[in-house]
Design a protein around this nucleic acid. Structure first.
Length: 842
DNA sequence: ACCGCCGGGTGCC
DNA sequence: ACCGCCGGGTGCC
C-alpha cells in the first residue's frame, strides 16, 4: 500500500486544465521567492533540535499543492498577507503552496522566525482525511543560545515544545566520535565505483575525426541517454498514476521535470573533452547528429508533444581561462577538417555580443570570468538571453561557492541540458555538491532548504541513511572512471609502459666535505632542540637545516642567498628587519617542498602566514584560533600571538637569472649526472623530449647554463608565469616541429593538475619530494592519455645523504596511506619529529 | 422572544 | 466540515 496523494474534491482534471498556466507561473515565482530567501540562510550544520509541536495546516482547498502522508513541507513567512501579517504559509517540496498555519500558532511562530531564533520545519505524518485542514508536526532548529528564548516565547502563547528526548543528542555524540571516520571514508568513496552497468556503447557521429576508445563510447552512450531518455530523476518512481519521490514523500500527477545532463567525473586524461565534443556532434535534437552542413532547414520545426524547444542549437562551454586554448585545439583536432562546425570564442573586448549571432553558433566557448563579468553589469547579459541547447561546465568544481558571483551567473543560464565536467567534483565537503546539483536543477535540492534538511544535515550529523541517499543521488547522475578502472578485467586505457629508475649520484670530494660540514652543524642544532624538547617550537629552523642539506645535494649555488644565521630573531632587530626575516622563513618553509601542512587543519597550507614565533598556518585557521581565545597562543609553541603581527608572503619576485652570476656557472655532481643522461639520449634519438623537474626554481635557473652550453633547445615552466605565457610555453613544447624545444625545465609544483605534456617521454626528477604523490602527479603529466611512447623516469638521489632518507620515509608513508587511507593526521606532528630524526640519522 | 431551538449557509490567512 | 460558527426564522405539543 503506498501513500495516496490528497487533493481537494471536485473534478481534478478540469481544475488543472483551467488553471494550468496561471498556477504554474504563480508556483514558479513562489519557488523563486523561496529560493531567494533560502539562499540567504546559514548552513544547517550547527543546528540543534529544540523540540517538536503539533499544529494544523488550514485552507488547503484554496491551493493546488499536494501533500502525502509522511511528506516534508516547507514553512514560509508571509508578512505581506493582507489578512494577517503573522501569516505562515505551508509549501510542498516543489514550492507549491499547500495552505497556512492556523493563525494562533502562526502568530507565535512569526516572532521566532522573523528574529531568526529558530528554523521551523514541518512533516505531515498523518496525511489528512478531509479537504480543509490537516495536522502537521513542526520541529524547531537553531543554535543552542536561542533555545530558551524560543521555548519561552512559544510557551507564553500556549505552545509547549516536546523535546525529542535524548535521540538527537545521542545522534550528535555518535557523529562526534564513532561515525566520523566511517563517514569520511564513505564520503571519500562517494564517487568511486560509479561504473555499474552503464556499459552500452555508442558510436560517435561521422563528423568526429578521432576514433573513440571503448570507455569513451560508453560515456557517450550514457550521456546521450541522459539527454534523451525520459527516465525519472533520482528518487522519483511511478506508482500507479502518480509520480512519487521516496525521499520527501512528495507525489504528483504531473511527471517531474527531467534532469537532462549530469556529472562526468572521469579522471583527468580519460578524454572528457573528446567525449563532450562527440556528444555535441552526435546528439542534437531527437537523438540525431548535429546537422553540420549549413543547410539551415535541417532544423525541423514540427508539432510535438515534447515541450522542448527544437530551435535551440548552440552549446555553451564554460571553462577556466587556463584550458580555453585546449578546447579550441581539441575541436580542431577531433572534428573532421571538411566539417563546418561553427565554434565561437566569446572572449576579449571585441567579442560579438549579438544574441542572434551567438545562438546560431554550434558551440560558444567562454570563461567563467567573462560570464560573470557580463552578468555583473546587470542588464542584458548576452549569454543569459539565449536559450541554450546545452551548457557544459568544464572543471565544474570551480563553481562550488554559491555566494560567488560566478556561481550566480552560472545558475541563471537557460538551457535544456546541463553538464558538469570535473575530475574532482568534491574538493572539501558535502557542501560542494549542493552547487552542482543546483546547477543541474535536481529538484527539490536546488532549493537550499531541502538540501539541508534531506541531505546535508543528516550526513553531517552522522545519519547513515542520509549518506546512503547522497550516494544514490550521486550515483544516478554521475559517471566516473579512473585511470585504473577496469571493465571486464581490462584496463580502461592502455597507457604505454612506465619505468622508474633511481640513479645514485656520488658527490665529489669537495661537495662531500661541504655537505658533511653542514650536516654536522645541523645535527648539533637539532640535537640541542631535541634535548630541550623544543623541536616543534623551532620547526622553521629545522626545516631550514634540512633544506640546506638538500640544496647541497643539488648545487652549491642554491645556498647563495640564505644567511647562515638562522637563529631566533635578535631583540635588536628593527620591525622591518624582523619582517624581512619572517618572510624569508616563510619562503623557506614553503620552498622546502615538504608539502608543509597547517597544524590547525592538518591540510595543505592555504593563504599561509607566519607568526612571530616562526610557525606557519593557514590564515583562516590561525584567525579562528585567535578569535577563540582571550590571549591567543601559538598552537605549536604556546607563544603569545598578536593578530597584527602575522606576516604574509609578499607577491613573488621574479628570479633574475643574471643575479645568480650564471655567466660563469659552476657544475655539480647532479648537474653532470643529468647532462650525461641528456647527451646520451640525444645521441640515441635526437627527437625524444624530456621533462627536467626540480622543486627549486633556482636549480632550474642554474641548469639553463649547461643546457645552453651544450646546445639544447629548452623551455621553462614555473609557477611565476602568467597563464598566457604558460599556454604559449606548453604549446611550443608540445609541438612536433623539428626545431621545437626538446627539454622542459619544470618546477615540481607548477601548473597543478591538467597540464598536458605528452610530447615528453623522459622525466628527470632532480630531487626527491616529501610527498610521493606530488612526484606521481608530475610524472602523470606525460604518462597520460595521448602518450605514444614508453615513459622512462629517472630519479637522481645523492648517495649517503638526506635524499636517501627522504626516499625511505616516502616509502614508509606510501605504505601507511595504502593501509589506512586518510587516518594519518592524528600523529602527524610526532611522526614529523621521527621523520626529522630519521633524516639526520639521529 | 433582551430567550432556546432548528436548519441552511458557510468556512485560511 | 459526519465539525463550529453565524445569523435568520421561528416559537407548546
Amino acid at each position: 500500500m503506498f501513500p495516496r496523494p490528497w487533493r481537494f474534491g471536485g473534478d481534478r482534471l478540469t481544475d488543472v486544465d483551467l488553471f494550468a498556466d496561471g498556477s504554474e507561473s504563480a508556483a514558479e515565482s513562489l519557488s523563486q521567492a523561496i529560493r531567494a530567501a533560502a539562499s540567504a540562510e546559514p548552513d544547517a550544520d550547527g543546528s540543534v533540535s529544540f523540540g517538536q509541536l503539533r499544529g494544523t495546516v488550514v485552507g488547503l482547498r484554496y491551493y493546488s499543492g499536494v501533500v502525502n502522508r509522511g511528506e516534508m513541507v516547507g514553512l514560509v513567512r508571509e508578512p505581506q498577507n493582507p489578512y494577517d501579517r503573522n501569516a505562515v504559509m505551508v509549501t510542498n517540496v516543489l514550492g507549491r503552496q499547500v495552505g497556512h498555519i492556523r493563525k494562533e500558532l502562526a502568530a507565535a511562530m512569526a516572532y521566532v522566525m522573523d528574529n531568526s531564533l529558530a528554523k521551523v520545519e514541518g512533516v505531515v505524518y498523518s496525511g489528512t482525511n478531509n479537504t480543509f485542514s490537516m495536522p502537521v508536526t513542526l520541529s524547531f532548529w537553531g543554535s543552542e543560545e536561542n533555545r530558551d528564548a524560543v521555548l519561552k516565547h512559544m510557551a507564553s502563547r500556549g505552545f509547549r515544545l516536546d523535546s525529542d528526548g535524548g535521540r538527537a543528542a545521542v545522534r550528535r555524540s555518535y557523529s562526534a566520535f564513532a561515525f566520523v571516520f566511517q563517514l569520511k571514508n564513505a564520503f571519500d568513496n562517494l564517487f568511486e565505483g560509479l561504473m555499474q552497468s552503464k556499459d552500452g556503447e555508442k558510436e560517435a557521429a561521422e563528423a568526429v575525426a578521432t576514433p573513440l576508445l571503448p570507455h569513451q563510447k560508453q560515456a557517450l552512450s550514457w550521456m546521450c541517454a541522459r539527454e534523451n531518455k525520459d527516465a525519472l530523476p533520482p528518487f522519483w518512481e511511478k506508482r500507479g498514476e502518480l509520480y512519487y519521490n521516496s525521499l520527501t514523500c512528495f507525489s504528483a500527477k504531473e511527471i517531474p521535470e527531467r534532469l537532462r545532463g549530469g556529472i562526468l567525473a572521469d579522471d583527468m586524461g580519460l578524454g572528457k573533452t573528446l567525449t563532450t565534443i562527440a556528444l555535441i556532434l552526435t546528439n542534437f535534437h531527437k537523438g540525431k547528429p548535429l546537422p553540420v552542413e549549413k543547410s539551415v532547414s535541417c532544423v525541423e520545426v514540427s508539432i510535438s508533444e515534447n515541450t522542448e524547444d527544437l530551435s535551440a542549437r548552440a552549446t555553451l562551454i564554460l571553462c577556466p581561462l587556463s584550458v580555453l586554448s585546449n578546447w579550441l585545439d581539441q575541436f580542431e583536432q577531433h572534428v573532421h577538417a571538411d566539417v563546418k562546425l561553427s565554434v565561437y570564442l566569446y572572449y576579449g573586448p571585441e567579442r560579438n555580443r549579438s544574441k542572434t549571432f551567438l545562438s546560431s553558433q554550434d558551440v560558444v566557448i567562454t570563461t567563467y570570468n567573462v560570464l560573470s563579468a557580463d552578468f555583473g553589469v546587470g542588464w542584458d547579459s548576452p549569454l543569459h538571453g539565449i536559450s541554450w541547447l546545452r551548457v557544459v561546465l568544464d572543471e565544474g568544481h570551480m563553481i562550488r561557492n554559491p555566494n560567488a558571483q560566478m556561481s550566480k551567473a552560472v545558475l541563471e543560464l537557460k538551457a535544456q541540458r546541463r553538464w558538469i565536467l570535473s575530475g574532482t567534483p568534491i574538493q572539501n565537503s558535502v557542501k560542494d555538491l549542493w552547487m552542482l546539483l543546483a546547477f543541474l536543477r535536481l529538484k527539490p535540492f536546488d532549493v537550499r532548504e531541502w538540501w539541508n534538511r534531506v541531505i546535508q544535515r543528516p550526513v553531517t550529523q552522522g545519519d547513515k541513511t542520509g549518506l546512503q541517499n547522497l550516494q544514490n543521488l550521486v550515483r544516478c547522475i554521475t559517471l566516473r572512471r579512473t585511470k585504473s578502472s577496469e571493465v571486464n578485467g581490462r584496463r580502461l586505457v592502455l597507457l604505454p609502459k612506465k619505468t622508474v629508475y633511481v640513479e645514485q649520484v656520488e658527490l665529489s670530494q669537495q661537495e662531500r666535505e661541504e655537505y658533511e660540514l653542514a650536516r654536522n652543524e645541523g645535527k648539533r642544532t637539532i640535537g640541542r632542540y631535541v634535548a630541550e624538547g623544543s623541536v616543534l617550537r623551532n620547526y622553521a629552523d629545522v626545516l631550514a637545516i634540512l633544506m640546506r642539506l638538500r640544496q647541497h645535494c643539488c648545487h652549491p649555488d642554491l645556498l647563495g642567498k640564505i644567511s647562515s644565521d638562522l637563529g631566533k630573531p635578535a631583540a635588536a632587530d628593527t620591525p622591518a628587519d624582523l619582517r624581512e626575516r619572517l618572510i624569508e622563513r616563510l619562503r623557506l618553509v614553503l620552498a622546502s617542498g615538504s608539502d608543509e601542512e597547517c597544524s590547525v587543519c592538518l591540510e595543505s597550507l592555504r593563504l599561509p602566514v607566519i607568526t612571530h614565533c616562526a610557525h606557519v598556518y593557514c590564515r583562516p585557521c590561525i584567525a579562528q584560533v585567535i578569535s577563540s581565545e582571550q590571549q591567543a597562543r601559538c598552537p605549536l609553541c604556546r607563544g603569545e600571538i598578536n593578530p597584527s603581527e602575522l606576516v604574509e608572503f609578499p607577491p613573488e619576485e621574479v628570479e633574475d637569472e643574471k643575479s645568480m652570476n650564471c655567466g660563469r656557472w659552476r657544475t655539480s655532481s647532479k648537474v653532470q649526472a643529468l647532462m650525461g643522461n641528456l647527451l646520451r639520449l640525444r645521441s640515441e634519438d635526437a627527437n625524444i623530449k624530456s621533462l627536467v623537474v626540480s622543486q627549486f626554481t633556482r636549480f632550474l635557473t642554474i641548469l639553463q647554463g649547461p643546457l645552453r652550453e651544450h646546445g639544447f633547445s629548452f623551455v621553462r615552466l614555473d609557477g611565476t608565469m602568467s597563464q598566457k605565457k604558460r599556454a604559449q610555453t606548453i604549446q611550443e613544447f608540445q609541438s612536433s616541429a623539428a626545431d621545437s624545444p626538446k627539454i622542459m625545465l619544470l618546477s615540481l609544483k607548477a601548473g597543478g593538475v591538467g597540464l598536458n605534456l605528452t610530447a615528453a617521454s623522459r622525466v628527470f626528477l632532480m630531487d626527491p619530494a616529501w610527498n610521493p604523490a606530488t612526484e606521481e602527479q608530475c610524472i602523470d603529466r606525460c604518462h597520460r592519455l595521448g602518450q605514444k611512447k614508453n615513459v622512462v623516469v629517472t630519479k637522481f638521489i645523492v648517495k649517503d645523504s638526506v635524499e636517501e632518507n627522504m626516499v625511505r620515509i616516502q616509502k614508509k608513508k606510501q605504505d601507511l596511506v595504502e593501509k589506512t587511507f586518510g587516518s594519518v593526521s592524528k600523529d602527524s606532528k610526532t611522526s614529523r619529529i621521527d621523520d626529522i630524526r630519521a633524516l639526520l640519522e639521529m
